[in-house]
Computed example of a mutant assay.
Amino acid sequence: MPDNAATAGLDIPDGERAALELLERGALEVEGRLVGASNATLYCTIKGGGAEANCVYKPVAGERPLWDFPTGTLAGREVAAYAVSRAAGWNVAPPTVMRDGPFGPGMCQLWIDLDPEVDLVALSRRSDHAGLREMAVFDAVVNNADRKIGHLLPVTDGHLYGCDHGVCFAEEYKLRTVLWQWRGKALPRRSVEALRRLADDMAAGWLADELSKHLTRREINATRSRVAKLLKHPTYPYPSEDWPAIPWPPV
């Protein structure tokens, strides 16, 4: 199993375990660049052990500096987001690892084929979609500053993934999302149970250890505090009065 995958104490399905192994150890070949992305985002083929898949590779060297996040940390934040997603059981982030590649170390994430029948704008406005509700809680935990409509990845079996979690885990409240339709409403029981799992895993130490590979101690403590606050007041958060509520562009 890849050393940098968040697997300790987790019951990972065989298919996802195989995907993590392929992402970590497979031969990476760049096929093209996703030109709409603000940072270098490369579409790749990865092969190994008789398996083949497509993935996204974001080298650290291709990250554009930001004023509010330390330079060179975005790829690691995506891996940390996967760890939180997997530990809670939300499975929002696709399998994601840190590895070396043609342009140096970077994030490597399994490519997700979208369900072409889903209207993403209409999906983002729904209030009755369980996966979307869980994504909103996940975003609150990781403090996602960039949940755009285009970051929603619905697949044909009904599951909903999300991508582009590089600007997460800030210490200050920076939640910026298109998913505000539940603000102030009570969290579902399933979400509360997921938060309890996260709190337990942080207390056990292994999840904090995993996050420490990519985040500062203060960022980890801030994540722990967000989980505790959501458990104490189990409601969806409100937008900040000091921070834009919706990313731009929203799509």
Rank of each mutant, 00 (worst) to 15 (best):
V92Q: 03
D14E: 14
V79M: 02
A204H: 11
H129T: 09
A27K: 11
N39K: 02
T156F: 02
E172L: 13
L230R: 07
V84T: 04
R183Y: 05
P244L: 09
T73G: 07
D11I: 07
Y161A: 06
H159Y: 08
Y173A: 15
R196T: 12
C168L: 05
G62P: 07
L34K: 09
V92H: 00
M202K: 02
R196C: 11
L175K: 03
R77N: 14
A186K: 09
E31M: 07
E210D: 15
D146S: 05
A51Q: 15
L23R: 00
P13S: 15
G49N: 11
W206Q: 14
R77T: 13
K213N: 13
A37I: 03
W180R: 05
A204C: 07
T41F: 06
F103Q: 14
W206T: 15
K185S: 15
L120T: 05
R196G: 11
A208K: 08
C163D: 05
V118K: 00
P239G: 11
Y82L: 01
R64D: 09
K185I: 04
M202Q: 11
L175S: 09
L114S: 09
P188V: 02
D14N: 05
H165Q: 11
S38H: 07
V167N: 03
P116Q: 10
R218L: 09
A5W: 06
D164Q: 02
